[in-house]
């Protein structure tokens, strides 16, 4: 009986040993699953902790509905700074599946300080913007600036 029991156990563990590769694969998959769960848990915690910050950032990314508001804001800035402001071109440059850039060429004409202040305001627009190029030149009585601004925008679905 003792011999039979030991034999059964030996056979059992021998079978386990021969199936080791399969177990190794299972273990690797389990390890990856545990790691993935840990990452996701950590990510969810981060998302919870930065909820308000993420909302703030999202508010600064232009939406499809916000384009008109943006153009209205730019024109308002022009009026406030007493410059002749016009949006020359408006194009879309793709970035990835989620984002794109609105490329606006804006010309501003007026006094030097007004043009510069308008330019400064354009760089501080409440959106994720970057100035691609800025060209400032003196005309007969005024200064004229042409600015290419790229504004981050959610891709329209």
């Amino acid at each position: 009986m003792l011999l039979a029991s030991v034999t059964v156990c030996v056979v059992f563990f021998y079978k386990l040993e021969t199936q080791k590769d399969a177990y190794e694969t299972m273990r690797m998959e389990e390890s990856e699953r545990v790691a993935r769960i840990a990452s996701l848990t950590s990510l969810l915690e981060t998302l919870d902790a930065t909820n308000s910050e993420r909302e703030t950032i999202a508010e600064h990314v232009l939406t499809e509905d916000g384009v008109v508001d943006l153009l209205a804001l730019i024109e308002t800035l022009g009026r406030e700074q007493d410059v002749l402001l016009s949006t020359e071109t408006l194009t879309i440059a793709p970035i990835n599946a989620r984002f794109e850039e609105l490329v606006a060429t804006i010309s501003v004409e007026g006094r030097y300080e007004s043009v510069m202040r308008t330019f400064e305001l354009l760089t501080l627009l409440p959106y994720e913007t970057r100035i691609q190029s800025a060209n400032l030149q003196q005309t007969t009585n005024n200064w004229r600036g042409v600015f290419d601004i790229r504004i981050l925008k959610f891709k329209s679905i």
Partner: peptide, 26 residues
């Protein structure tokens, strides 16, 4: 994750500071 969280906070703070500057300048 910590870096990601730090970046998010950094960008949010940057936007808020910029908004204040924009309003002030305007």
């Amino acid at each position: 994750m910590k870096y990601s969280e730090r970046d998010v906070r950094h960008y949010a703070e940057r936007f808020e500071a910029r908004d204040v500057e924009f309003a002030k300048l305007r």
